[in-house]
Design a protein around this nucleic acid. Structure first.
Length: 268
DNA sequence: ACACTAACCTGCAAGC
DNA sequence: TGCTTGCAGGTTAGTG
């Protein structure tokens, strides 16, 4: 489910309800996530105040007085604020209750996500590329890092070392808007074309955030509301359907075992 | 260093 | 109707 816009939407939904609050109860019902939930996490975090909640790449970080919690939603995770005592759903793995009555629930059917506590740095956050919406991410970087590389441009921009937060949906959409075939070798793309692509990556992510993310299957923000960006998708999930620009049939291929849809006429 | 694959896990839709 | 197959938003560990 979540790419960067969905994680950002989640952050904005939950942050006001939990920041500066004290964690009164922390419950783990299923500790078997991508990495096991930190042993003894409840005792480590209960009684602590949340000082800061922020996002880095697709991770959410909840900073405590002592240590911090690192949360990832994987492919199918979601975080929701619920009423205390709200009925438990299948795959509601973790619950965090605040002293002001707010209750945050972590739901993740596929369990590819994580929820970890560390007193120091989280190693997952080292070696991450720049945030896509920051000035540190620019065409020069895309161009220079790609010289002599044979990797297809789509997996190249989805690599967290290149830039974080560009997943399958928005990589597909940005390449379509930029008119670049997803299977073109990254090392053969000019600085000019990377300039266009960089602009579209930033645009498509920013637009998706404004619209509350893309709702596929059951994505909802922290308040349980859907996103609306899927109405804007031009290629993702539309293999075989007509191109919104030229009317030709959209082609679907596999790149790095991810399905990639593009218009053979508009994208070169 | 780079390119590529398999793996983690459940749910759902399509096909037979 | 019911079974099987394939596919899904991400990331990492391992191979050559």
């Amino acid at each position: 489910m979540p790419e960067l816009p969905e994680v950002e939407t989640t952050l904005r939904g939950i942050e006001p309800a939990i920041v500066q609050q004290v964690i009164s109860h922390f419950t783990v019902r299923q500790a078997s996530l991508r990495w096991p939930v930190t042993v003894g996490i409840s005792e480590l975090v209960e009684g602590q105040r949340i000082t800061l909640v922020y996002r880095r790449a697709k991770y959410l970080i909840i900073q405590l007085e002592r240590g911090s919690m690192l949360i990832h939603l994987g492919m199918s995770g979601s975080l929701r604020l619920v009423q205390p005592g709200a009925e438990l759903r299948k795959h509601d793995h973790i619950e965090m209750q605040m002293s002001n009555g707010s209750v945050l629930r972590y739901h993740d059917p596929r369990r590819f996500g994580c929820w970890l506590w560390s007193e120091t740095d989280h190693h997952q956050l080292s070696h991450l590329g720049p945030e896509p919406l920051s000035e540190d991410f620019d065409a020069q970087r895309l161009y220079q890092l790609s010289r002599k590389r044979k990797i297809a441009v789509k997996p190249y921009i989805m690599d967290n070392n290149t830039v974080v937060g560009v997943g399958n949906i928005y990589a597909s959409e940005a390449l379509f808007r930029a008119g670049i075939r997803p299977d073109r070798a990254a090392g053969n793309i000019s600085l000019q074309r990377y300039t266009v692509l960089t602009g579209h990556i930033k645009e498509v992510l920013a637009a998706a955030i404004v619209q509350g993310g893309t709702t596929l299957r059951d994505f909802v923000n922290g308040k349980g509301e859907p996103g609306y960006f899927q109405q804007t998708l031009a290629v993702y999930g539309r293999g075989g359907e007509p191109c919104t620009v030229c009317g030709g049939s959209l082609k679907e291929i596999k790149l790095g075992q991810r399905s990639s849809v593009f218009c053979p006429r508009c994208q070169r």
